[in-house]
Amino acid sequence: MHVSRWIPIACFGLGGLGALACETLDPSAPGNLVPPTVTEDASLPAIAMNGSRFHLETFGDPGNPVVVFLHGGPGSDYRSMLRLAQRYDGYSLTDEYFLVFWDQRGTGLSQRHDRDVLTVDRYVSDLDSLVQRYSPGRPVYLIGLSWGGMFATRYINQYPERVAGAVLIEPGPLDGATMERLKDDILDFDPGSEWVNDVAWGNQFLSPDDHARMDYELLLGMRDGQPGFGLSTVDPEPSWRLGAAANRYIVEDGQDGNGVFNYDFTTNLTAYTTPVLFVAGSLSQVLGRSLQQEQVLLYPSASLVVVDGAGHDVAWVKPADVLAHVRTYLDALKGAPR
C-alpha cells in the first residue's frame, strides 16, 4: 500500500492526540457546561426541605402575606419570573407581600434527582412544605407561569383552603384530554426541523448520561422548538439551568402506560370559590387566549386578561403590564371573605 494513503489517517490521529495533549475538561464536572447546583456550590441561596435542597430567594418583609412563584417547564426555573419582583410605576409587590421564588425539585439550580422522587405528588408535597415553612397557618398567594399555572391548579385542587388567591399566567392544559388535543402544537416535533436535527446530531458529541449533559442538551429545543408560543427574539427569557430529568419524569407522570396524558388537576376545583386571575399574551397561539377562555370555566370564579404585544413569555416581556393586573387582582381580594 502506498504511504500517501496513510497521510489523512495520520492527520486524524494526530488531531485527536494533540487534543489529548492539551488541558482537557470533564463534561460532567460542576460549572463546566452548566452552572453548579446548590449541592455543588454552597454559596448559592438555598434551603433544605422535604428530603432535597432547593435554590430559593425571598424578597420583602417576612411578616407580610406570602406570594409563592411557580415557574414553568416542568424543568425550567424562576429566573424568567424575576422581573415580577421589580418596581414599575412606583410599585413593587415587595411593598405589600413577601415573595418566594424557588426552583422546583430537580430543576434550575436545585438538587438533581432520579426518577423515583420526580413525581407530581412529590412536587405537591414540596410546595406544601414550602407553604408551611413560610406561611404557617395562613394561606398563600400563588403566581404560576405555564407549567407553574398547572402546578398551582394541582395544589389548589388538593389544598383549596391553603391558597388565598392565584394568578395563572398562560397555564398549560389543566387536564390530560386537553393536553392530548394540543400536544403536537405545543412542541413542534417536525423531523425535518433544524432544532430536532440539532438535538439528534448533538448526541454524537455529548451523550445524555448524566444530569449536566442532559440539562445542557435539553436547551437545544428551548429557543426554536415552540414556534406557537410567540416568544420574543429580541428579549428572550433567560434561564439558570434546565432540569432534563424533571422535565421528562414529571411529564411521564401525567401519562398512562401508553404515553397518553390522563392527568386531571380539576377534579375538586368546585371547592375553590376564591376568584382566580388568568393572564394570556396576545401573541401566544397555542396556550394563549383561546385555551385560557376554555380554562377559566374550570374554576367557579375566574377571569382572563390578555396583555398585548407579548407571547407565552408575557411575564418577562411585559412585566409592568402583568404586574398592574396582578396588583388590581390582589387589591380586590383584600378583605374579601373566604
Binding site: A19, T24, L25, N32, L33, F205, R213, R223, R241
Partner: peptide, 28 residues
C-alpha cells in the same frame, strides 16, 4: 473521544456566562 466546544453568545448571555470553552474528554 475528544470534543472541542465553543459556547455561543446566546448561551453566555441568556443562560450561563461562565461556561467553559475548550477540549472536553470522553464526552459520550
Amino acid at each position: 473521544i475528544v470534543t472541542h466546544l465553543t459556547h455561543s453568545d446566546w448561551y453566555r448571555r441568556y443562560i450561563y456566562p461562565d461556561a467553559k470553552d475548550g477540549w472536553y474528554l470522553d464526552t459520550g
